[in-house]
Simulated assay, not measured.
Amino acid sequence: MKDIDITRAIRAKSDQLNADDLLAGPMTIKIRDIQVVAGEQPVSVYFDGDDGKPWKPSKSALRVLAAIWGANAAKWLGMSCTLFNDESVTWAGVAVGGIRVSHMEGLSKPREIKLTKTRGKKVGVTIQPLLLEKHSQADKWKERLFAVAEDPEKSVEDAWGKVPAEIKAELADDIYDKLIAMQEAATLERESDPDATANALNDAIG
């Protein structure tokens, strides 16, 4: 018997991506545009194949994106992440589901982000590395540079100076700016997390 995919038929009728659109499974998106307007959902993230229905991240999701890619959303363009329906998300005390981020491009290892759940209480959310298929030497260099950006012992500027000219020509024009933004975001995240130093030491000694 042939397969009959009903994914499109069960999508919620809306002008934006909904948690119900992810009932069939997670979705990996590549960001192509971001718009910011006034309102309760000020940020609209447009991605390849969005059919004109942007993802409007919650504050928690925006906090995750900013913690890893930096607060300047212009640097998120061209980056990829995986979204999923977290059925535990509640509204008015009822579990209604919500869109969360599980994986992000630019990480070489899982990173825990501390998010404010209620006043005075934070919870840790672990974001996994998004492993994209590498087709060229430029892709491999890009992966190495991402790892440098999140390493407190390394410098993006120094690493960039070692990239061959022909590889730089293949990489996106704004890749260096993305790397600097990610390095600054990683530094800020470590400084704002009182457990970061202890965690780094535990990782180092195994």
Rank of each mutant, 00 (worst) to 15 (best):
I127M: 04
V89C: 05
E150K: 06
S88L: 13
V89D: 10
E112T: 13
E157A: 07
L131S: 12
R100A: 13
A147G: 11
V94F: 04
V125C: 04
W91D: 14
R111W: 10
N85M: 15
S88R: 15
T82M: 02
P110F: 02
V156G: 00
K140V: 04
S88G: 15
L83E: 03
G97L: 08
A95F: 05
D151M: 02
D158G: 04
E157Q: 05
R111F: 09
E87C: 15
G98D: 12
W160N: 03
S108Q: 07
L130H: 07
P129R: 03
K140F: 06
E143F: 08
G97N: 12
G106E: 14
P110A: 12
L131Q: 14
A147K: 09
D151G: 00
T118A: 14
R144C: 02
E105G: 06
D151Y: 04
G120W: 03
G124M: 06
S102I: 05
I127T: 13
V96T: 00
R119Q: 05
E150I: 07
S136G: 09
G106C: 06
A92Q: 12
G124Y: 08
G106T: 02
P152A: 12
W141V: 04
V148A: 02
S136A: 04
G106R: 12
V101H: 07
V89T: 07
E150L: 11
I113W: 10
L131W: 10
W141F: 07
L107P: 01
A95I: 05
K142Y: 09
A159S: 07
K134P: 01
P152H: 10
E143A: 14
G97S: 01
T82W: 06
A159D: 01
E153K: 11
E87N: 15
A159E: 02
E157D: 08
R100E: 11
H135A: 13
I113T: 11
S88K: 13
W160Y: 06
E157F: 14
G120T: 00
D151L: 02
D151H: 03
E157N: 04
Q128K: 12
R144E: 05
D86F: 10
S88Y: 08
E87R: 14
N85A: 14
K142V: 02
A149H: 05
S88Q: 15
L115A: 11
K134D: 06
V148N: 00
L132E: 06
K117W: 06
G93R: 00
G124S: 08
E153M: 14
H135M: 14
V125W: 11
E157Y: 09
E133H: 14
V148C: 04
H135V: 11
D158A: 14
S136R: 08
R111M: 10
V123H: 12
K114M: 15
G97D: 07
R119T: 09
V101E: 09
V123F: 06
D158Y: 05
L131P: 09
V123A: 10
D151N: 11
G98Q: 04
S155M: 00
K114I: 15
A138C: 02
W160C: 00
G93F: 00
K140T: 07
S108W: 03
A149I: 00
H135R: 08
I127H: 10
P152W: 05
W141Q: 02
K114P: 13
V156K: 00
D151K: 01
